[in-house]
C-alpha cells in the first residue's frame, strides 16, 4: 500500500477528488456544448458570498453556499432565457457582487473560526471533514444520476433548441436544471479545487475529450476518465510535492490537454494524403446516382471513370481501381 493511503486525511482527500473528478466533467460537457464555459466561474464567485453568510451566521458554510448558488443559478438561466442584452450586465453585477460580499463577510468571521478566504478560493482538500465528505457524496451522486437520466434531453436541447422545442421537450425546465446542477457541482468542488479553479475541472477534461473522442458519447467517457485520473493524480502529486491540491489538479489537467493536442496534431500531419477535394468533384455520389456502388468494409465506394472513391467528410478518398491493392494501404476510417 502506498504510504499516502496510511493517512486519514489523504483517504478523505482522494475520495473527495474522485467524486469531483467524476461529477464535474459530466455537468461540464453540457456547459461546453452550450458555449457557456465560464458560467461555473461566475457561480464560484457567488458561492463565496454563501460561504461568508454561513461563517458569519454560524451555519455550515457548505449549506449556505449551496442555497445561494442554486438561487443564483436559477436567476442566471431566467435572465438568459429572456435574452436581453442587459442580461450580460446583470450577470456581471451578480458575479462581482457575490465575490465582494464573500470577502467582506469573511473578514468579519468570528475569532476562532478556521475559515480563511484563500482556502475557499483555492481549495484546501485536507481540511475536508467527515461531515463534508458525506454531504459531497450525496450531492455528487445526485449530479451524476441526474445528468445520466437527462443526458439525451440535455444533448438534444443544446444541439438544436428550436428542434427540441418543436418536438415538445421542456427546454426552459431542462436548462434551469442544468444551471442548478452546475451550482451543486461548484459547491461540491470548492473544497477540492477552490472557487476560482472550479471551472477548470468542468471544462478542461472535456477539452481533452473533444480532442480524442470521435463522438459525443466517446468524448464524454474520455472526459470522465481524464477527470478522475487527473483529480486523484493531482492530489497524490500535491502530497509528494507539498503543493496546494487545487492548483496541482488543474496543472495536471492542462498537461494532459497539451499532450492530447500535440498527439492529435501529429496524427493530422501523418494523414492528410490520398484525398481529392469535393470542391473539384462536381457530382454528389449517393445511392441513387447511377454510378456503381460497391460495399467496401464499413462504407460504400462509388465507381466513376474507373476510379473507386468514398466520401470521407468534405473530400473523397481515392480507394483505387482494384481492391487487392487497396486493401494493403487501406486508410483508417472513422
Amino acid at each position: 500500500m502506498p504510504e499516502f493511503l496510511a493517512f486519514d486525511f489523504m483517504r478523505a482527500s482522494l475520495l473527495a477528488a474522485l467524486l469531483v473528478g467524476t461529477a464535474a466533467p459530466m455537468v461540464g460537457i453540457h456547459i461546453v456544448q452550450r458555449q457557456m464555459s465560464l458560467i461555473g466561474d461566475g457561480l464560484g464567485h457567488v458561492a463565496l458570498a454563501g460561504v461568508g453568510i454561513g461563517v458569519v451566521t454560524g451555519n455550515e458554510p457548505v449549506f449556505t453556499a449551496l442555497i445561494v448558488t442554486v438561487i443564483a443559478a436559477v436567476a442566471i438561466e431566467l435572465i438568459r432565457s429572456v435574452g436581453r442584452t442587459s442580461g450580460d450586465l446583470a450577470l456581471a453585477v451578480m458575479f462581482y457582487g457575490g465575490i465582494a460580499l464573500g470577502v467582506v463577510l469573511l473578514s468579519k468571521a468570528p475569532a476562532g473560526t478556521p475559515a480563511n478566504t484563500s482556502s475557499y478560493l483555492f481549495g484546501a482538500i485536507n481540511t475536508v471533514t467527515n461531515t463534508d465528505l458525506a454531504t459531497f457524496t450525496v450531492l455528487a451522486v445526485i449530479v451524476v444520476a441526474t445528468t445520466t437520466l437527462l443526458r439525451s434531453r440535455l444533448y438534444a436541447i443544446a444541439q438544436d433548441e428550436d428542434f427540441a422545442r418543436s418536438a415538445g421537450l421542456p427546454v426552459v425546465f431542462v436548462n434551469i436544471l442544468l444551471s442548478v446542477l452546475t451550482a451543486v457541482t461548484v459547491v461540491v468542488s470548492m473544497r477540492v479545487v477552490g472557487l476560482l479553479l472550479i471551472s477548470a475541472l468542468m471544462i478542461l477534461p472535456n477539452a481533452t475529450g473533444q480532442t480524442l473522442g470521435r463522438s459525443f458519447r466517446s468524448s464524454l467517457w474520455l472526459a470522465v476518465g481524464i477527470g478522475i485520473v487527473c483529480s486523484t493524480g493531482g492530489v497524490i502529486a500535491s502530497y509528494y510535492a507539498d503543493t496546494p491540491s487545487g492548483g496541482s489538479i488543474v496543472l495536471v489537467l492542462i498537461a494532459v490537454f497539451a499532450v492530447a493536442q500535440l498527439g492529435a496534431w501529429l496524427v493530422r500531419v501523418v494523414r492528410g494524403r490520398h484525398q481529392s477535394s469535393l470542391a473539384t468533384h462536381p457530382h454528389v455520389h449517393w445511392e441513387d446516382c447511377g454510378h456503381e456502388a460497391v460495399a467496401h468494409g464499413d462504407h460504400v465506394d462509388y465507381v466513376h471513370d474507373g476510379q473507386r472513391h468514398a466520401a470521407h467528410g468534405d473530400h473523397w478518398d481515392e480507394h483505387g481501381p482494384d481492391a487487392e491493392k487497396h486493401a494493403s494501404k487501406a486508410p483508417v476510417r472513422k
Binding site: V32, Q33, R34, Q35, Y155, G168, Q210, S215, F216, S219
Partner: peptide, 18 residues
C-alpha cells in the same frame, strides 16, 4: 456544427428523444 463533437447518428438520434 456545435461546439462539441457529434456523429451523424447522434444528431439523428435527437429525433428519438421525445
Amino acid at each position: 456544427a456545435t461546439s462539441l463533437r457529434s456523429t451523424v447518428g447522434e444528431v439523428v438520434g435527437v429525433g428519438r428523444v421525445a
